[in-house]
C-alpha cells in the first residue's frame, strides 16, 4: 500500500489538473455564448442569399452559371474541410475527419482524384499526415473569423472549378445542433442545389444590370463564400461547446479521482495510527 505522503502528492497533482480544466471550461463557456451570437447574426444574410440564388435558379435565365450545372464525368473532386486550430475539444475534429475521409473514399472508389483545402490547423495536420493532396490551407482565424481571410482559400477551389480541374466541390464541417450535440456534415457546394421557389414559376426573368453574366458570376461567388463563412462561424461555436463539455467531463473525473484517493489516504493514515498504538501496547506488555 502506498504511503500517506505519496498519496498526498498524487492528490495535489490531480487538484492542479482540475484547476486547469475548470478554468478552460469556464473560458469555453463564455466564448461559446459569443460564438453562438455570431452564428445567429450571420444567419439572415445566409438565408436571404440562399433565396436569391433560388430565384436565379428558377428564373428563365439566358445565362446558366457553371456552378449550377452538373458535369457528366467527375474526374477530380474538391473538399474544403473546416476544423479547429486547437485541440482538447473531444471528438469534434476526429468525427469531421472521419466523415470527410469516408466521403473521399466513395469518390476514390469511383476513380476520381481528391484535392483538399483545409481551414484550421488540425485539418492541415491530419490530412498532411495521411498524405492527401492539399492545395490550399488557412489557419489562425481565431474566435471571430473574418471573411477576408477565407476568400483566398475559396478562390483557389473556385478557380480550379472554373478551369475544369475540379468537377465537384464539397464542404465538411460540424453542424451545431445544440450545446451537447455537434454532428459532422458533408455539404455539396458545386453544383449548387438551390431551393427553387415553385410559386414563381419558370416563365419570367430578371432585368440585369449591367448584364446577366457579370451579375450572376458575382452572386454565385458571394453565395459560395457566404456558405463557407457560415460553416466556419458554426464550427467555432461547435468547438467552444465541445471543449466546454470535454473540460467539464475532465473536471468531474478529476473530482471522482480525488475523493477516491482521499479515502485511500484516510485508510492508510488510520492503519498507521492503529499500528503505532498496537506497537506501544505490545511494548508496554513486554516490560
Amino acid at each position: 500500500m502506498a504511503s500517506g505522503k505519496e498519496i498526498r502528492t498524487q492528490i495535489k497533482s490531480i487538484q492542479n489538473t482540475q484547476k486547469i480544466t475548470k478554468a478552460m471550461e469556464m473560458v469555453a463557456a463564455s466564448k461559446m455564448r459569443k460564438a453562438q451570437d455570431r452564428m445567429a447574426a450571420n444567419r439572415p444574410y445566409a438565408t436571404r442569399m440562399k433565396s436569391v440564388v433560388g430565384h436565379i435558379a428558377s428564373a428563365n435565365i439566358e445565362y446558366l452559371h457553371p456552378y449550377l450545372k452538373d458535369r457528366d464525368s467527375v474526374k477530380r473532386v474538391g473538399f474544403i474541410v473546416v476544423s479547429t486550430d486547437r485541440g482538447l475539444c473531444g471528438g469534434l475534429n476526429t468525427n469531421a475527419f472521419k466523415a470527410a475521409v469516408s466521403a473521399m473514399k466513395e469518390w476514390q472508389d469511383q476513380g476520381a482524384e481528391i484535392d483538399l483545402c483545409t481551414i484550421g490547423r488540425k485539418a492541415n495536420g491530419f490530412f498532411s499526415r495521411i498524405g492527401a493532396n492539399i492545395v490550399g490551407q488557412v489557419d489562425g482565424l481565431g474566435d471571430a473569423p473574418e471573411l477576408a481571410k477565407l476568400v483566398g482559400t475559396i478562390k483557389i477551389m473556385l478557380d480550379a472549378y472554373d478551369e475544369g480541374r475540379l468537377d465537384r466541390l464539397y464542404l465538411v464541417e460540424n453542424e451545431f445542433v445544440n450545446t451537447m450535440t455537434q454532428t459532422p456534415r458533408v455539404q455539396q457546394l458545386i453544383p449548387a442545389e438551390p431551393d427553387v421557389d415553385e410559386k414563381l414559376g419558370h416563365h419570367w426573368d430578371y432585368i440585369y444590370e449591367p448584364d446577366s453574366k457579370t451579375v450572376v458570376d458575382h452572386v454565385m461567388t458571394r453565395y459560395i463564400e457566404s456558405l463557407v463563412y457560415q460553416a466556419v462561424v458554426e464550427n467555432v461555436a461547435c468547438e467552444m461547446s465541445a471543449r466546454m463539455l470535454a473540460m467539464k467531463n475532465a473536471s468531474d473525473n478529476a473530482g471522482d479521482f480525488i475523493s477516491e484517493l482521499q479515502t485511500k489516504y484516510n485508510k492508510a493514515r488510520q492503519a498507521a495510527i492503529t499500528q503505532e498504538i498496537s506497537e506501544i501496547v505490545g511494548g508496554a506488555a513486554a516490560v
Partner: peptide, 19 residues
Amino acid sequence: SAELGEVGIAPGHTPLITR
C-alpha cells in the same frame, strides 16, 4: 445607387438584379 446609376424601386417593380 446601382451599377449603372441610381435606381428608385416602387412596389410592383419588375424583377431586377444588380450589383
